[in-house]
Amino acid sequence: MLDAAFILLQTAGTDEGSATGIFRFFAAFVLIAIIYTGALSFTYWISKDE
């Protein structure tokens, strides 16, 4: 379990030989979704009373 966590969090290159690349893919996926929905919600919030 701990080994798996080390593999996922390693900071070396993003070669896709291990699960690191996949982890980063989904990490990026989640971050994008947060930024995108965050900005959309903010836009909705500031304009909902118009």
């Binding site: 900071t11 980063r24 990490a27 990026a28």
Partner: peptide
Amino acid sequence: IIGKNVVIAVLVQS
């Protein structure tokens, strides 16, 4: 943790 490629990916995709 996420590496610099992911930083670009996140910003460009958003």
